[in-house]
């Protein structure tokens, strides 16, 4: 019963290593280095990285920017709630509001074009989950996250909330179109 007894030899730190252990430690260390290397590598050569662009912002200020975009680029309204569908030009700033329990407005983007997507929450924390691509971002009140997105497939996408935000959390779902 030795792991529950003091080491049999008082000077245990001078014991030589077994080859099994030594070999495994070297392999595991090499693998750990690969794991570490992949993240900076992907920043340099991969196409899916988070930007580091973020700002502190009040709910009112963000909401005003989103409203200005909606006023300018709304192409139609959908559902009985008349949610505006916005078709902004390539390269423009696109705003998406997360609030209890709605994403607003509905975005319509073009395939292969890039947009600066701004995300912020008006009240509690929310989770931006683009389905079926399964891209997931945390949306935090008081912070505006900016990320450049480039859709690579046309179709109808859904935006699901995947951060618990109260009793209506499971009803917070919206659409995103890529033409």
């Amino acid at each position: 019963m030795s792991a529950i007894l003091p080491p049999a030899k008082r000077v245990w730190w001078k014991e030589p290593l077994d080859r099994v252990e030594l070999t495994w430690i070297l392999i595991a260390f090499a693998w750990a280095m690969v794991l570490f290397f992949m993240m900076p590598y992907w920043h340099a050569f991969g196409r899916q990285n988070l930007s580091n662009e973020a700002y502190r912002i009040s709910a009112e200020a963000f909401s005003a920017k989103a409203q200005a975009m909606v006023d300018k680029y709304t192409v139609r309204e959908e559902t009985e709630q008349k949610i505006p569908v916005v078709h902004p030009p390539e390269g423009s700033d696109v705003y998406l509001i997360a609030r209890l329990w709605q994403w607003w407005p509905i975005l319509e983007l073009e395939n292969g074009k890039s947009y600066r997507l701004h995300l912020s929450a008006m009240d509690y924390q929310h989770g931006f989950s683009l389905q079926p691509s399964n891209i997931n971002l945390q949306v935090v009140p008081g912070y505006e996250m900016v990320i450049t997105v480039t859709p690579n497939q046309a179709g109808n996408y859904s935006i699901v909330c995947n951060e618990y935000c109260g009793l209506g959390h499971h009803q917070m779902v919206s659409r995103l179109y890529v033409k």
Partner: peptide, 28 residues
Amino acid sequence: LSDPGLSSEWKVFNTSYFMYFAVLASMI
């Protein structure tokens, strides 16, 4: 890791538990 306002350098350094030495420990 998916939060706004934290830099990628900070994220990469910390999430790797600094070079994955804690993963190494568990593998040991």
